[in-house]
Design a protein around this nucleic acid. Structure first.
Length: 962
RNA sequence: GCAGGGGUGGCGGAGCCAGGUCAAACGCGCAAGGCUUAGGACCUUGUUCCUUAGGGAUGCGAGAGUUCGAAUCUCUCCCCCUGCACCA
């Protein structure tokens, strides 16, 4: 067992001393490989590691293929998380402090973490340290953080470019809001980290017949406006008169408060439910007069506190009216108009087919009143007007779902159209005509509570800047760029196409958080995903700026225009910025060298947000040669079958894992343990498998170093070379396609297996083993860089394997026929096993031992004839061409066995002669394995009655018992 | 709801795009044997069912189709996972 720790440290120092990863442009082809920069509120853990190790493995591979590869890393600290984090520290949040302890943060450091900048600083240090520990070859000179002034200058320039192009627009949009703190609330601002789920509702205005005021009702189903019979108010709740946009509205007091954040509602007076009940409202579309009735189910804190009643399609409305009737309330005569008909596409479906078993488990009933759908659904679910609210809710959801899916309008402007179409159409029409307005509510089933303890609501933020990702022309360009990009795995291409289509306005300024001030509203900062869409290009020259002490204020737009966009001339840029021409030119050359070929790496969670914005922004602000060329998306990693999460307490910081399991072992399992697109799993089980093979390779390396190379090469040696070269070929192809698991199944697992087999069947040539190992070790080095250096040196080399060339397959050494011979030896041995097992059970052989086994190899003409059959030749022609080589009748008889040709699909490559040689060399091995004598003979020389059975790829065997 | 991805043996996971070499790579687990003072490690063999000479049957979510031939192609159905925005 090796001391992994000292091996790791030794080689990390050697790489660092050789400045292997501090790369600059040279005459080789340049490429930049990078991972999405991490957020700075934790050390990297096993889950993150895959995203950092994958590009490192890839970069190391490409370097060995002769490229000049840069792997940089920066850090992301923009936005509110570290601020929230610092607040939680200040409040001594026990959960947070506990998790910091698991990351080995000292109490002293925790105290300092009330400063968000210290948090960032601390974790940047930590991340760098741990990523070095796993052996990642990162050029740390280029490290930067997204909140530093130099970087901000580039973001400012980027947003000026976006504005110039007309991609920034002003508008409004709804956000979750805390009325106490007067701030937007996102997930991390709420108790239990729930997402404020905002939904849009149509609020329809019904004029009061006898005044200028309006009733206003929030509804999910504006298309049912044609069936409104009355309005409901609840005499248990408080009502007010509120002014919005110059008009007066009757709403609940709670609704007025919420509407003040949505539409500047102002309370101008009070009014009681009793007063409202005396009024009459007018349906804005049908102009019918509608009575106001008491509705027991109307809630103050939902909608407006006034509900439009559509008893024909809304079970609650139907139930409420029935109950009123039953109580003797004087209700005017009203018509329950059926508005929507269900049209099912096939006979198998019908009313109730969308009922979910977890909602309703009882018996369904007979439907009688189909002319009143709300009643029909109640009947179907065996409910009645006295059912409890929960049951009525089930009926409501079901009718809503089924009518939305299968409903067709029977009345109104959208008659004959689908319900969904009518809903959207009427909403738009009524908003346009002023008969309705849009309002927003939190759709979460549980109330969303801000961390301050206040119930969150929805507010509309006005005069907000957006990036208009909905721009058709822009989308078109991105789409065409995508079609030229390489995606690994390719299966995400369609997802990207959909996303490009889907993405629309994105709010990009925020009142809170760390980041770059927005040039067109310096009160605000740029939203944290929007400021990190072209950051990678900063890697190409930020170390040059720093080395030359360039100050933020010197990074004027003309600098970026020149360096990135080739606008202007270096002399005037230098004059304007005060930066030396030499420095500016160097920046520009560096960008030009590194940024034309890039590979971006991340986990799939960035696809719908960062990656889409990454593409759009590159297209918008950069010249085409700097557009993204390649995206690599790796799966997640779980621990011992469980997803890594704080709540499960199974987060293992990368540094701890390295100390415990070894850097190369972790790299191997993370990167080569699962194919790129599938999720991986870290388990001690997988680890021990890796370790035992490392041990074996080590023993072989040591052995090879001591072994004497014999001159004579036998079949088994040629077999080894053939395997090696075909392996190199396959592994190289797999690496080129970023199929790391496939590549390392070849390089690691199958190499170990082949070495074992080589030894087992009598291979003993030290030179062959050394050649083999030297290629395997080189191929292993991207994923196991430390151990490979160690092996490389044990094999007698003095260079760093990291700087060596990836082996090139010698096609001439690949001998499929020979490999087939060895496979035939194997399958023949299996046949022998089976045969011995079956014949051993025979009465005659009871109590006897196997004396010898005879292997009879098929005559060469059989293989020749078989191959002709595979090629599709006619049997007659084959027989004719065999004239003189074999007996005509035997050929005919042999070929008759393949009459339907089903079995003749694959050529036989092994010749009788080579097969004979291989069997002869394998004789000792087979004898040892079966513990008996073994004879090998050719069919033409054999006296055995079983010789005729011999097939080209299946020798006949004969067992003799003593 | 909309969109995307996926269903292979006790498990993980190849193969399916370019149908035959597939009872199905590789790995894990499990069983028997070897080695060992014992355990671990390691090695061998086996791991759907049937079968007294290397054979046969069933089989890749369910069903149907195309084909001489389907895990692989077509259609229908069922089930699972992921994302849905102003959050990093």
């Amino acid at each position: 067992m090796m001391d992994f720790k000292s091996v790791q440290e030794k080689w990390q120092k050697a790489w660092s001393d050789a400045k292997l990863f501090e790369v600059e442009p040279n005459d080789r082809k340049g490429m930049m490989v990078f991972a999405a920069f991490p957020y700075v509120n934790s050390p990297p853990h096993m889950g993150h590691l895959r995203t950092f190790c994958t590009p490192d493995v890839y970069a190391r591979y490409l370097r060995m293929r002769g490229m000049n590869v840069l792997f940089p890393l920066g850090f992301h600290a923009t936005g509110t998380p570290v601020i929230g984090y610092a607040k939680r520290i200040a409040n001594n949040d026990p959960d947070l402090i506990e998790s910091l302890h698991t990351f080995h943060v000292s109490d002293e450091d925790i105290k300092k973490m009330t400063d968000p900048h210290y948090i960032a600083e601390y974790f940047i240090r930590q991340q760098e340290l741990e990523l070095r520990k796993v052996g990642n070859g990162i050029d740390w000179r280029r490290k930067f953080i997204s909140i530093e002034p130099l970087y901000s200058k580039m973001v400012e320039w980027q947003f000026m470019k976006l504005k110039e192009k007309g991609y920034l627009v002003k508008g409004t949009h709804p956000v979750g809001w805390c009325p106490n703190e007067n701030n937007a609330v996102g997930q991390h601002d709420t108790m239990h980290d729930v997402w404020p789920d905002i939904e849009e509702i149509t609020a329809i205005k019904f004029k009061d017949r006898d005044s200028d005021a309006y009733f206003i009702c929030a509804t999910y189903r504006p298309e049912t406006i044609y069936g409104v019979t009355n309005l409901f108010v609840n005499d248990g709740i408080e009502y007010v008169v509120a002014e919005m946009g110059g008009a007066q509205y009757y709403v609940s007091k709670d609704a007025a408060f919420r509407l003040s954040y949505l539409a500047d509602a102002k309370v101008t007076g009070k009014i009681t439910a009793a007063e409202l009940l005396k009024k009459t409202a007018i349906n804005p579309l049908t102009k019918e007069e509608l009575p106001i009735l008491p509705g027991y189910f109307v809630k103050a804190d939902k909608g407006t506190g006034v509900v439009m009643s559509v008893p024909s399609h809304a079970p609650f409305d139907y139930v409420a009216l029935e109950r009123l009737k039953a109580s003797g309330y004087n209700i005017p005569k009203m018509e329950y108009k059926k508005l929507i008909e269900l049209k099912f596409p096939d006979a198998k479906k019908g009313m109730g087919s969308m009922l979910k078993p977890d909602e309703f488990s009882g018996q369904t009933g007979e439907i009688v009143h189909r002319e009143v759908p709300a009643l029909a659904y109640l009947e179907f679910l065996k409910m009645n007007p006295n059912s409890d609210d929960k049951s009525v809710e089930v009926a409501t959801k079901l009718i809503y779902r089924e009518e939305a899916r299968y409903g067709v309008m029977l009345v109104g402007a959208y008659q004959g159209k689908s319900e969904a179409e009518a809903r959207d159409g009427l909403k738009a029409d009524m908003v346009k005509s002023g008969d309705a307005m849009l309002m927003y509510e939190l759709a979460n089933t549980e109330p969303v509570i801000c961390r301050c303890g206040t119930k969150a609501i929805v507010a509309i933020v006005k005069d907000q800047w957006f990036i208009n990702y909905g721009d058709k022309q822009w989308k078109k360009q991105v789409y065409s760029m995508l079609s030229k990009m390489k995606l690994y795995p390719e299966k995400y291409r369609h997802t990207f196409e959909m996303l490009i289509d889907w993405i629309d306005l994105r709010a990009m300024e925020r009142a809170q958080g760390l980041g770059t001030r927005f040039p067109f509203n310096p009160e605000h900062i740029i939203e944290s995903l929007s400021d990190s869409t072209i950051y990678m290009l900063f890697y190409t020259f930020d170390h040059i700026l720093r080395a030359n002490n360039v100050q933020p204020e010197q990074l004027k737009p003309c600098f970026f225009d020149y360096v990135v966009d080739s606008k202007g001339d270096v002399a005037s840029v230098s004059k304007e910025t005060g930066i030396e021409e030499r420095v500016i030119t160097k920046c520009r050359e560096s960008l030009d060298y590194w940024y034309q070929s890039t590979s971006s790496h991340s986990a799939p969670d960035l696809i719908p947000n960062h990656y889409v914005m990454y593409m759009f922004n590159h297209v918008a602000v950069l010249p085409e040669r700097f557009w993204p060329k390649q995206l690599v998306i790796n799966g997640f990693v779980s621990m011992e079958g469980e997803k890594m999460s704080k709540s499960l307490g199974n987060i293992l910081p990368a540094g701890d894992a390295v100390d415990k399991y070894g850097a190369d072992q972790i790299r191997f399992i993370e990167v080569a343990g699962a194919e790129l697109d599938s999720d991986g799993e870290f388990s001690t089980n997988a680890l021990s498998g890796v370790n035992s093979r490392i041990d074996y390779l080590l023993s072989q390396v040591i052995d090879a170093n001591r072994a004497e190379g014999g001159n004579e090469l036998r079949s088994v040696d040629f077999w080894m070379y053939s395997r090696l070269n075909s392996k190199i070929k396959r592994a190289t192809a797999a690496m080129d396609g970023l199929m790391f698991k496939g590549a390392y199944d070849e390089v690691f697992y199958s190499s170990v297996a082949e070495l074992k087999r080589y030894r087992e069947i009598g291979g003993k040539n030290g030179l062959v083993v050394t050649d083999y190992l030297s290629a395997v070790v080189r191929m292993l080095s991207p994923v196991m860089p430390h151990l490979s250096e160690e092996f490389w040196h044990l094999l007698g080399n003095s260079t760093l394997v990291a700087t060596e060339q990836w082996p090139v397959a010698d096609e001439g050494m690949v001998n499929p026929g020979l490999e087939e011979c060895f496979d035939i030896v194997d399958s023949t041995a299996e046949d022998m096993n089976r045969t011995l097992e079956l014949t051993g059970k025979m009465e005659v052989n009871k109590g006897r031992k196997v004396k010898s086994i005879k292997v009879i190899l098929a005559e060469q003409w059989k293989a020749d004839a078989f191959n002709m059959l595979v090629e599709g030749k006619e049997i007659g022609d084959i027989i004719a061409s065999m004239q003189g080589k074999a007996d005509k009748e035997r050929v005919a008889k042999y070929l008759q066995g393949f009459r339907n040709r089903k079995e003749a699909t694959q050529r036989v490559l092994a010749s009788q002669q080579s097969l004979f040689n291989v069997f002869s060399e394998s004789r000792d091995y087979l004898k040892r394995r079966f513990g008996c004598e073994l004879e090998i003979e050719n069919e033409q020389d054999s006296q055995s009655a079983r010789s005729g059975r011999a097939q080209p790829s299946r020798p006949s065997i004969e067992v003799a018992w003593s």
